[in-house]
Simulated assay, not measured.
Amino acid sequence: MTRHPIPFLDLAGVTESLRDELDLAWKSVVAHGGFIGGPEVGEFEEQFADYCGTRHCVGVANGTDALELILAGLGVGPGDEVVVPANTFVATAEAVCATGARPRFVDVLPDTLEVDPDAVAAAIGPRTVAVMAVHLFGQMADVGRLAPLAARHGLALVEDAAQAHGARFGGRRAGSVGVAAAFSFYPGKNLGALGDAGAVVTDDPDLSARIRQLANHGRGGGGHHLHQVPGRNSRLDTLQAAVLSAKLLHLDRHNRHRSALMDRYLHHLPLDHRPLAQHRLAESVHHLAVVQVPDREATTRALDAAGIGWGIHYPVPCHLQPALAGFADGPLPVAEHAARHILSLPMSPTMTADQVDTVCAVLGQVTR
């Protein structure tokens, strides 16, 4: 992996800063040997449910599985439609397709690039069963409008909270608004494992039990060797659960640091590098520092020359992906325009204010 003087995300630095706690977690699990279903799994599930303000948490193998298991647990299947914003990681739509349902793509708001509630309302039809509220870049979608909209139509509001660990809207944590929420603990997330991991949180005990059953080969109620329903293998392993418990203690502190870095970006970015807006009721955890730039090619060349890491989230909207093009109903101009101009700048709990200033200075040279 290429190391930049200013990395896009300093995973090695974050891990090193927590080395003693992570080493202890490793030694504890190795000592008792319960690598699958060890006590740390239940402990993390309880801690994370409490953190999100929900009653239940089910640890699973990754965030994509978490989304699919929620939909499967809700009974979503062939003939159903689920409303999905076009500006999201492909996993959101993949999870819908995996159930046999159809993703119904809608456009996003031009200022936040979050799903447009008016577009969601227009897309609801007789086959719609659920709405995906994707909390993108660290900011929750406008659940103040989406939740009552879903309730009026009798639809399940499912939160894709893969990028929003600790975010709030109207004082409520990500994961506590919809019928259930999916989290990814991919290493680069605000709360990241040392490998793949994910979780579902919900207040619904029956849904929690169904998801746990589906994720564990359909076992439930009859012992280890009886499989009540066709299931799958999607488990949070003990080592990752132990790591996540150790890192959860630092999540709010790391999120506050991200917010401070974003504030500094806002004060020093060139005027033609426009950051995304934040809803007045939203408290973002700034998973990504996304700006819209006039000339992305020139900007990325300058960042490369200065040894500054960058990313693009996402250069191809879901409805234009070859694998999903058959579900497109037509152009979605906001998402398509944004895809040509968005750029993700460095953001990490180890990043310094001086590094933000350096990034902004390089961006300033591009605009001259």
Rank of each mutant, 00 (worst) to 15 (best):
R55P: 00
A91F: 15
G77Q: 00
P78G: 12
D80E: 13
D80Y: 14
V58L: 04
T88K: 00
E43F: 08
G79H: 13
T112R: 05
T64S: 14
G100E: 10
E45D: 13
E81I: 08
T64G: 15
A72Q: 15
L69N: 04
G53P: 09
V76H: 11
G42H: 04
D107H: 11
D50G: 14
A95W: 03
F44I: 09
P110A: 06
V83C: 01
L67R: 08
L74Q: 14
V106P: 07
P103F: 07
Y51N: 03
A101S: 11
A91I: 06
T88I: 05
V76G: 11
G73E: 01
G73P: 08
P78D: 13
R55H: 13
F48H: 07
A72I: 06
L74S: 07
C97S: 12
C97G: 00
R102H: 15
D50N: 14
V76M: 13
G42E: 10
A86Y: 04
G63T: 10
G53E: 12
D65C: 11
G75T: 08
A61W: 04
E68K: 12
L69M: 14
V84S: 06
F105E: 06
F105C: 09
I70A: 03
D107F: 04
T99I: 00
T112A: 04
V76L: 11
V83F: 01
G73W: 05
L109M: 11
V90Q: 07
R104M: 09
A101R: 06
F89W: 03
V60I: 04
V108D: 00
V90T: 15
V83P: 04
C97F: 01
V58P: 06
A86Q: 05
F48S: 03
V76Y: 12
A101D: 04
L69T: 00
T54L: 09
V84D: 03
A72H: 07
D116K: 02
G73T: 03
A61L: 15
P103L: 03
D80L: 12
Y51H: 14
V90G: 02
L71T: 01
T88D: 09
L74H: 07
G73N: 03
I70E: 01
Y51S: 08
E114Q: 15
A93M: 08
L69D: 07
P110K: 03
F44N: 01
C52M: 12
P78L: 10
L67S: 05
G63R: 04
A95H: 05
D65W: 15
V106F: 05
G100T: 11
G100C: 05
E68I: 03
G77E: 08
D50K: 12
D116E: 02
T112I: 02
E46M: 14
E46I: 05
D116Y: 00
A66M: 06
N62S: 15
V82S: 04
T54I: 08
V106K: 03
T88C: 13
D107M: 02
N87D: 13
C52Q: 08
C97H: 00
V84L: 01
A72L: 15
L71C: 03
